[in-house]
Simulated assay, not measured.
Amino acid sequence: MILFFGRTDDPPLARAIRAAQEADHRHLVIDQARLARYDLVVGTGALDGLLTVEGMRVPLDDVSAVYARPLELPDGGDPAARARAAAFQEWFVAWLDTTPAAVVSRPSAMESNSSKPYQAQLIGRSGFVVPETLVSDDTDEILEFRAQHGRIVYKSVSGIRSIVREFTEADESRVHLVRGLPTQFQAYVPGQDVRVHVVGEHTYAAAVDSDAIDYRYADQGGESARLAPLDLPPDTARRCVDLAASLGLPLAGIDLRRTPDGEWVCFEVNPMPAYSYYESHTGLPISTALVEYLDGHRAATPSRG
C-alpha cells in the first residue's frame, strides 16, 4: 500500500493522490487537518503498529511506500485535539526514518538543505559548478565581495524559503543590518534558469525564461516567467540523478542555470519540491512518475552517499 501524508489542499500532494487514484493503486491518505481523528497502537517491535484512519485499520507493515509532505499543523481548534495531532505527527515523522518502506523523502535525507553552504559543498563534489559564495555578517567582507564580482545576489543560509535578490546600491547603504545575521552572497551567474525534477532514475526539466532575479516571485515585480519542457544533455541528466541519489532523495528539485557558454551551474537541491507549479505550466508528468516510483520501487530503500 502507498501511504500519502500531508495536507490534501497542498497541490503537490493532491496531484500525487489523484495520479494514484487514476492508476488504481492501493493507497491511503493521512490528512494533517484530521490527525486528531486518527489513532495509533504501537506494537511490541520498534516498527510494529496499527493505524486507524477514517475507520480503516492498517498494519504499519502493510505500508510499502510513502510520499510525505509534512507542513505546519492548522491553527485553532480544541487544545487537546491540537496536542493529539502534534503527538501523532511527531511520531509519524520519526517513523519515516526507520520504516523499511520506500519513503519520499526521509527527514534525515532532507536535512542537507538545512544549511545551504553545506549543501553547496555536496553539490560541488557531485561535479556541478557552484557560484562563488560568501557567507558573512561582516560589512567590509560583503562590500569587498561585491567589488570583486560586480553583480551579486543574496539569500538566507537556512532551508527556509527566501526570495533571492540582487545586491543594489540601496542594499549597500543598509548592509550594516546584516550584523549578527550571517547571509549567503553569491556571484551573479548569467544564463537561463532550468528546474530539474528527479524521480528515481528519471529527470523532468523545465526551462524558465524570465527577467526576474527570482522567477518564482516574478509577478511581485510586475515581471513574468515562461516555462517550457527541456531535453537535458544526457551527461547533465545523469549528474542530476547521481546528485539526488547521493543525498538520499528519490524526489528532488534541482535548480540549475545554463550559462551563455553552455556551462551548467547548480544553485541548490530542494528535498521537498513543489513540483506542481512546473507540472501545471509544462505538462511534464511528474506526479505520474512519482506514483509509479512509489508503486514500482516500493521495496527500495534510498541509500546515503
Rank of each mutant, 00 (worst) to 15 (best):
I254Y: 05
D261Y: 08
T139Q: 11
R18E: 14
S173W: 07
A299P: 05
S280K: 12
Y217D: 05
I152M: 02
A244D: 10
T98H: 15
R57I: 06
L247C: 08
Q220E: 11
A23G: 13
E169F: 05
S173N: 13
L96T: 00
P107A: 04
G76Y: 09
T52S: 10
E268W: 10
P233L: 02
R257F: 03
L290D: 00
T168L: 11
P79I: 05
R151D: 11
E22T: 07
Y204E: 07
S287L: 03
V130P: 06
D9F: 12
V194L: 08
V208G: 00
Q220G: 12
D242F: 07
T44S: 14
G296Y: 10
D39K: 11
Y38C: 03
C266V: 06
D138I: 06
R26A: 14
G6C: 01
V241R: 08
R18L: 15
A102Q: 07
D211L: 12
P131V: 00
S64M: 12
M110Y: 05
A101V: 00
G253D: 03
V53Y: 01
E141V: 00
P260S: 08
P302R: 00
Y215S: 02
S287T: 07
S115E: 08
H281F: 12
R298K: 04
A300Q: 06
L35H: 02
L294K: 03
A289T: 09
D211E: 15
M56A: 14
S173P: 01
A244H: 08
D75Q: 15
Q184D: 02
D24V: 09
L71C: 10
E201K: 15
G76N: 11
P107D: 07
Y38V: 03
G305I: 12
R174I: 12
G49Y: 04
V175I: 12
L249I: 12
V130Y: 03
D9V: 12
E172W: 11
V164I: 15
A207E: 13
S276N: 06
D140A: 15
P131F: 04
S115C: 12
R18I: 04
A244M: 13
A205K: 02
R179K: 12
V291F: 01
L51P: 04
P190H: 07
V199E: 05
R165W: 04
R226Q: 14
L251K: 02
L143M: 12
A33K: 09
V208T: 05
L73M: 11
P79E: 09
A65F: 06
F92M: 01
V198F: 10
S246L: 10
Y278F: 15
A36Y: 06
L256A: 01
G124T: 07
A68E: 02
D75W: 15
S115V: 04
G6Q: 00
Y188L: 05
R18V: 06
V189I: 14
R161E: 14
D211C: 08
F128V: 01
A101Y: 00
L47C: 11
R34W: 04
K155Y: 09
E201Q: 15
E223G: 07
V42D: 08
V208H: 01
D97C: 05
I30D: 00
Y277R: 14
H281I: 04
V104C: 09
A20F: 01
D242P: 03
S105L: 02
S64V: 07
V29H: 02
A101E: 06
I213F: 07
L134C: 03
Y293Q: 07
A289D: 05
R125T: 11
A170T: 10
Q220H: 10
I254C: 04
E141M: 08
H197V: 10
